[in-house]
Amino acid sequence: MPEGSASLQLAVGDRVVYPNQGVCRVSAIDVKEVAGQKLTFVTMRREEDGAVVMVPEGKVLAIGVRKVASAE
């Protein structure tokens, strides 16, 4: 991610809310080559049905992904 860009610090195992998809758990953060460029992807699995969603790390905030609020 370019320096100075806002990002959401995620780790494998974090629970997040993905708008219009529901609650997901981060299952992987991997670098993949797409069209000759190396990009970091956040892979999330929906808790409702296990569907897998992959989002480029740089788009996580723009999409509206946020961490699940704690009970505290």
Rank of each mutant, 00 (worst) to 15 (best):
G36C: 01
V26W: 01
T43C: 02
S27M: 15
D30L: 13
A35L: 10
V23C: 00
T43R: 05
V23I: 14
G50C: 02
T43N: 01
M44W: 02
A11D: 05
K38S: 08
E3Q: 11
S70H: 10
K32W: 14
V52G: 03
V23D: 01
E33A: 05
N20S: 11
M1N: 13
V12E: 02
A11I: 09
V53Y: 15
R45V: 15
G50R: 02
M44C: 04
Y18S: 04
E3H: 10
V17T: 07
M44R: 00
A62F: 07
G64I: 10
I63Q: 10
V65I: 15
V23G: 02
E47L: 08
S7C: 03
V34M: 06
V31Q: 08
V60D: 04
V31S: 06
G58F: 14
M1A: 13
V17N: 07
C24K: 00
G50H: 04
K59A: 13
M54R: 09
V42Y: 13
P2H: 12
S5E: 11
V60L: 15
D14K: 01
Q37V: 13
V65Y: 05
T40D: 00
V12Q: 02
D30R: 08
R46I: 03
L61Q: 13
L39C: 01
V17S: 07
M1C: 03
A71N: 12
V68F: 07
G13R: 01
V26S: 00
Q9E: 09
E57K: 08
V53Q: 03
Y18A: 05
L8N: 07
D14S: 03
E57R: 06
A35G: 14
S70T: 11
K59F: 14
R66E: 10
G22K: 05
S27I: 15
I63P: 07
L10F: 08
G36D: 03
V42D: 00
A69T: 13
K67W: 08
P56W: 14
I29E: 00
K59L: 15
A62K: 08
V52R: 05
A6R: 10
V16E: 01
V53L: 15
G58K: 14
L39I: 15
D14H: 02
Q37R: 11
Q21R: 10
A35F: 09
S5I: 12
A6C: 04
L39R: 07
E57Q: 09
V17F: 15
V16R: 00
N20A: 08
K32P: 01
R25W: 11
A35T: 04
A28P: 00
S27D: 12
L39T: 10
K67I: 15
V16K: 00
V55G: 03
V65C: 07
A28W: 05
C24V: 04
D49R: 01
M54S: 10
T43A: 04
P56A: 11
V34G: 02
R45A: 06
V34R: 05
I29R: 02
V31E: 08
A11N: 10
L39N: 04
K32S: 06
Q37Y: 07
S7P: 13
C24W: 15
I63K: 07
G64W: 08
S5Y: 11
V31Y: 08
L39A: 06
I63R: 05
D49G: 04
R25F: 10
G64T: 06
A6T: 11
V26K: 00
G4K: 11
M44V: 02
A51K: 11
E33L: 12
E3G: 12
Q37C: 02
E57N: 05
E48R: 14
K59T: 13
P2D: 11
K67S: 06
N20V: 05
A62W: 06
S5W: 10
K67P: 08
P2N: 12
V17I: 14
A69Y: 08
K67N: 05
G36W: 03
A62R: 07
V23P: 04
E57Y: 15
V34Y: 08
V31W: 06
V31F: 07
Q21P: 01
I63T: 08
E33N: 08
S5A: 13
L10I: 08
A35R: 10
Q37T: 10
S7R: 12
G36L: 02
G13S: 01
R66F: 11
V65E: 04
E3I: 11
A11M: 12
S7L: 12
V23F: 14
E48M: 12
L39S: 05
G13N: 04
D49C: 01
M1V: 12
K67T: 06
K32V: 14
P2Q: 12
N20G: 15
D14P: 01
T43L: 07
E72C: 11
Q9I: 10
K32I: 15
S27Q: 13
A11H: 11
G13L: 03
R46M: 04
R45Y: 12
V17C: 00
N20C: 01
L10Y: 03
I63G: 08
F41E: 00
V12I: 10
G36H: 03
V53K: 04
M44K: 00
R15F: 14
L8F: 10
V65S: 05
K67Q: 07
P56N: 06
V60Y: 09
V42I: 15
M44P: 00
P19E: 08
V34D: 04
G22E: 03
A69Q: 12
R45P: 00
V65Q: 04
K38L: 14
L10K: 01
G22V: 05
V55W: 05
Q37G: 07
E3S: 11
V16C: 00
G58S: 15
E48C: 06
S70Q: 13
G22M: 06
G50N: 07
V23M: 09
K32D: 03
R15L: 15
V55Y: 05
K59R: 10
G22A: 04
Q9N: 11
I29F: 07
R25N: 03
G22W: 05
M1W: 10
V52H: 05
V17A: 06
M54A: 05
C24Q: 00
M44F: 15
E57L: 15
G13W: 02
V60A: 14
G13A: 01
P56H: 07
R15M: 13
S70M: 10
A71E: 11
K32F: 15
L8C: 01
V53R: 03
A6I: 13
I63C: 08
S7V: 12
V23H: 05
G36P: 00
D49L: 03
E72Y: 08
K67D: 06
A51F: 14
P56Y: 08
M54V: 15
K32A: 07
E48H: 12
V23R: 04
A71G: 11
F41S: 01
D49S: 03
N20F: 09
E47N: 02
G13V: 02
R66V: 15
E47R: 02
A28H: 07
E57S: 15
G58M: 09
G50L: 03
L8E: 07
G64D: 06
E3P: 11
F41C: 00
S7M: 12
K38P: 06
A62C: 06
A28N: 07
S7G: 12
V65K: 04
R66L: 14
V68C: 13
A62Q: 13
K38D: 03
A62M: 08
G22D: 03
E33I: 14
M1I: 12
V52A: 06
D30G: 11
I29N: 00
V26T: 01
L10D: 00
G64K: 06
E57D: 05
V60F: 15
A71V: 12
Q9L: 09
G58E: 15
V60C: 04
R46Q: 02
V55I: 13
V53D: 02
L8G: 08
R46S: 06
R66W: 07
P2E: 12
E48P: 04
E72V: 10
V34T: 05
V16W: 03
R25V: 14
Q37P: 01
N20W: 06
N20D: 09
V34L: 06
